[in-house]
Design a protein around this nucleic acid. Structure first.
Length: 580
RNA sequence: GCGCCCGUAGCUCAGUUGGAUAGAGCAAUGGCCUUCUAAGCCAUCGGUCGCAGGUUCGAAUCCUGCCGGGCGUGCCA
């Protein structure tokens, strides 16, 4: 159950019973300090003000109308009119006992199952994935996994860059390479970055080549079969490599999720035609333009967004309009989450403004941009994408693996080779992913090996280590978790802190689903791991002088901790191991 | 010029949408392993929340104006 929601409903009702207007929010939060209890309600003060009442008197009336005897020990009024709630250990113990054998650890499925489209990853064809793709891929997948855990239907939409004028030169370059080596697809294209660079170089230096390339662009857009075949080869070889990277990262993105820009091409003429019919798009200097009062141009006039070029070609705004429409009409989206670079913010807002005006997606279907900043180098300058010096995602993962290997050899060198490899991989991928997942910055951020791959403090290995410590207790105790029973008794401070944290798992999971931000769950899991580490230090389980009833109680807290950590880390795409 | 985002401890970041004395990790310092894995635990140190006003019982959070940084701004994506 969600304790916060439970209390919020109870107190909201009491607030109304005490004379507050019907929809007055109870504003229940986890308490800021231990002396303020476990939860606090901040809703009395605004209402008292509105009604011209003394807030502490209103708070008392709320309490008089509030029945929380089963759940709370103590309810008190504090400060100007806060209501502080202290949960009853027996109540928590009873709830937690129920979670020990529950494979959802107390998290209920969402009341209404939604279809949620998650726009993520979006690598470019004929280029290798590099560090800038990491956030979108990892965060998008983590949110997807969490939403799926809550029972929603998630469509991962991999909006790959598979269209545009650059394909002319790529096709021409591929053609040249094939003349010399028919097997080029299997050899030289292993290094896509080099392939792209070489074709660009050729394009810039050879006018004949450039002419041929431009001709191929026209032919490709006209649906020329040979060009399409060449284009398809480039898409396939790129995605084959990317799918390997996804697999390595433990990210659940498959070939079926590929929905690139080219997918919407067929929709574009009809959309422009439709917008023209609605009076939204008008002709200006040969191009089709949508004017938006919401945005101003340099002269202070409504900004014009071009949806079709003078030469008849379409632009990416038109594609994104079609894309939003497709996600609503064809995929049946109730909600669309876009995990895209912050630089696209204005562009997306414009596209969506047009989408709403054209009536392609109703207001109740939300289009949410979850932006993040650019990856900067240590010199505070962005990574270059074309002129070399790019940090490839694959080499980043290699480096992470190398570092994890060094660490494991040092700490647990005597582990069997197969197990060791598994642990190394879990730690390497977990560390890289966690460093991205735990941040919520929309501004730029500096990429640093040392921060990303440090294995101390608020990191994936810390939480994985907490998990192995629990498992170690069970190995020592020789007890099967499935056979655990008996009562939970919450006595020590460390037990109480752990217990309350365990009660709050669903709040964290639902927070991620609501906000689309996995760092909420990261923070929760770090706190949970911390509570367990403290419990581990202060509350022995397997010692000889621990009474039997205390031992069974603590074993259950351990079992639930393990389950919660595993489920929670699973929600954000981080593996656990039994030993490390 | 206009628009969007950002500015919190030496560093990396939280701050539950206006709540109580602004929190973590790293780094630094000092303690804790004959006792379930010390990748750990405990303690100390560290802040004019960019600056100045305003709104109110109450502001890191909201409004205005500055300062500083990033991004975007009609025929690339």
């Amino acid at each position: 159950m969600n304790v916060l929601k439970f209390l919020d409903q109870k107190i909201s009702a009491a607030l109304v019973a005490a004379g507050a207007p019907a929809d007055s929010p109870a504003m229940v939060r986890q308490s800021a300090r231990v002396q303020f209890g476990d939860y606090q309600s901040n809703g009395v003060m605004p209402v008292a003000k509105k009604l011209g009442m003394n807030p502490r008197e209103l708070a008392q009336k709320v309490i008089d109308n509030l029945d929380l005897t089963e759940a709370a020990d103590k309810i008190e009024i504090a400060g100007p009119g806060f209501i502080n709630i202290f949960l009853k250990p027996e109540w928590m113990a009873e709830k937690l006992s129920g979670y020990v054998q529950d494979d959802r650890a107390g998290v209920e499925e969402a009341a209404t199952r939604q279809t949620i489209v998650v726009d993520l990853s979006a690598p470019n064809v004929a280029k290798e994935m590099h560090v800038a793709h990491l956030r979108s891929t990892v965060i998008g997948d983590a949110v997807s996994k969490t939403l799926e855990f809550l029972g929603h239907k998630v469509v991962r939409a991999n909006h790959i860059g598979d269209w545009g004028t650059q394909f002319g030169m790529l096709i021409a370059h591929l053609e040249d390479l094939q003349k010399d080596n028919p097997d080029v697809m299997n050899s030289e294209l292993g290094d896509l970055e080099n392939f792209y660079r070489e074709s660009k170089k050729h394009y810039d230096s050879d006018e004949e080549f450039a002419k041929r390339a431009r001709n191929y662009v026209v032919k490709l857009q006209g649906g020329d079969e040979w060009c399409l075949t060449q284009w398809k080869k480039l898409v396939d070889v790129t995605m084959e490599q990317n799918l390997n990277t996804y697999k390595r990262l433990g990210v659940n993105i498959t070939a079926r999720d590929t929905m690139g820009e080219s997918m919407y091409n067929d929709m574009l003429p009809a959309i422009v035609e439709d917008m023209k019919g609605k009076g939204l798009a008008v002709e200006d200097d040969g191009a089709m333009v949508v004017y938006l009062d919401e945005y101003k141009n340099k002269d202070g006039d409504p900004m014009g967004v071009i949806v079709q070029k003078r030469d008849g070609g379409f632009l990416y705004t038109t594609t994104d309009i079609a894309c939003a429409r497709y996600r609503y009409e064809n995929l049946g989206a109730d909600r669309v989450l876009y995990y895209i670079d912050a630089r696209q913010a204005q562009h997306l807002q414009q596209a969506w403004t047009i989408v709403r005006k054209a009536g392609y997606v109703p207001e109740h279907v939300t289009l949410e941009h979850h932006a993040f900043g650019m990856m900067l180098g240590k010199d505070n300058k962005p990574f270059k994408t074309r002129a070399g010096g790019v940090v490839k995602l694959a080499s980043l993962l290699d480096e992470a693996t190398a570092r994890a290997t060094r660490l494991i050899e040092e700490k647990s060198g005597d582990m069997p080779a197969e197990q060791k490899a598994e642990v190394i991989n879990a730690i390497a991928m977990g560390s890289v992913k966690y460093s991205d997942l735990s941040k919520n910055r929309t501004s730029d951020y500096v990429f640093e090996w040392d921060n990303m791959l440090s294995f101390e403090g608020n990191t994936a290995p810390y939480m994985m280590y907490a998990y192995t410590r629990v498992q170690s207790i069970f190995r020592k105790a020789g007890v099967d978790v499935a056979a655990l029973g008996g009562d939970i008794a919450i006595k020590e401070d460390a037990e109480r802190e752990l217990a309350i944290k365990l009660m709050q798992f669903s709040e964290a999971v639902e927070g991620v689903a609501r906000e689309g931000m996995p760092h909420i769950l990261c923070a929760y899991l770090f706190e949970l791991a911390g509570c367990f580490m403290k419990f581990y230090e202060f509350c022995p389980v397997n010692k000889v002088d621990v009474p039997a009833d205390v031992k069974t109680s603590r074993l259950q807290l351990c079992a639930l901790t393990a389950r919660t950590l595993k489920l929670g880390l699973g929600c954000i795409g981080i593996e656990t191991v039994e030993q490390m």
